[in-house]
């Protein structure tokens, strides 16, 4: 399988990365080189093979459903580019 420039632009949109026309052209070639490389996986007979979900067989650890942390609002917003009164500030989402 290979991708065209339109597909690259659509994927960039899904990934929320702005791309220029030049970027999209260049990425098309790069992505096709990688997709060409991974194509060989189709040679492998995977009939009846389970997809891997965990490298080490283990039961998911569960913890008590109790509050172990909190009261850290100032820490949480400390690194944000824009905040107001303990909230993250973003451009208007709803008109």
């Amino acid at each position: 399988m290979s991708v065209d420039v339109q597909t690259v632009k659509r994927v960039a949109r899904l990934a929320r990365i702005a791309v220029s026309e030049d970027d999209a052209q260049r990425m098309t070639g790069e992505l096709n080189a990688i997709l060409g490389f991974v194509e060989q996986l189709n040679e492998v007979n995977v009939l009846g093979v389970e997809p891997m979900t965990s490298v080490t067989p283990m039961a998911m650890k569960k913890r008590q459903d109790v509050v172990t942390d909190g009261n850290k609002a100032a820490d949480i917003v400390a690194n944000a580019p824009a905040t107001e009164e303990g909230f993250f500030l973003v451009p208007k989402v709803v008109e």
Binding site: T7, V11, A15, L35, L41, N42, P51
Partner: peptide, 24 residues
């Protein structure tokens, strides 16, 4: 971009699922 593409609708089985089977 590669990751978004291989996980996107219609390609998940062909790429991601196949790769995880090969990993097994």
């Amino acid at each position: 971009m590669i990751g978004t593409y291989v996980l996107s609708a219609g390609y998940y089985d062909a790429y991601y699922l196949q790769a995880q089977k090969v990993r097994t």
